[in-house]
């Protein structure tokens, strides 16, 4: 083991992580114990990723890492070294129209306080990137990985069904 190996460093020594976030190369220096969620928020200022339970239950912190929806509170920032991360800020630039999923969420009143919303939107983005023609049962199963205290989920289910039709996207492999 080389002395440069992260495993043999003192646990608190900061480590520099290089990754791509929302298509831009990014570097951040964090304690090894820092979660990806905290690092995105505190180091890169991407506060759209919200932290609500810090144990992977609620889904509010969901982002895409190399195309997979992951809970950013359960992944250490150092584990994301070399990956491509997409957060809610990366779905549509501020000067662009809303992403079709985001548009469907507002059209169907799929959000109220908006705290769980970014994580949900990222999970739906991952779902619909891989699947076309989802039915309500499948939508409810996927959405049940997220906790929303405001909406009762009905608007969310409607929004996902609608975005499935309106988001013009390549046909995925359906394995999602």
């Amino acid at each position: 083991m080389s002395p440069d190996d992260p495993l043999v460093r003192r646990a608190a020594d900061p480590i520099t992580v290089a990754l791509t976030v929302n298509d831009r190369p990014s570097r951040m220096t964090v304690e090894p114990r820092t979660s990806l969620a905290d690092a995105l928020r505190d180091e890169l200022g991407l506060t759209g990723t919200h932290v609500a339970c810090e144990q992977g239950v609620c889904g509010a912190c969901t982002v895409e890492v190399d195309g997979e929806a992951v809970r950013a509170c359960l992944l250490l920032a150092v584990q994301a070294d070399g990956t491509e991360v997409r957060t809610v800020e990366g779905l549509a630039a501020p000067d662009e129209p809303l992403h079709p999923i985001q548009q469907a969420f507002t059209d169907h009143h799929a959000l109220q306080c908006g705290f769980c919303t970014p994580g949900l939107v990222m999970t739906v983005h991952h779902l619909l990137a891989e699947r076309h023609g989802v039915d309500d049962g499948e939508i409810r199963t996927v959405v049940s990985g997220h906790l929303c205290r405001c909406t009762g989920y009905q608007g969310i289910v409607d929004a996902v069904r609608h975005a499935d039709r309106t988001w013009d996207r390549p046909i995925g492999d359906g394995s999602g």
């Binding site: 759209g48 969420f105 059209d107 959000l111 908006g114 705290f115 939107v121």
Partner: peptide, 19 residues
């Protein structure tokens, strides 16, 4: 009427206390 506050919340541009 769809909500005026939705756009920023959906873009991750809400401003909660911890932000």
């Amino acid at each position: 009427l769809p909500r005026f506050e939705d756009g920023r919340l959906l873009r991750g541009r809400g401003r909660f206390t911890a932000d």
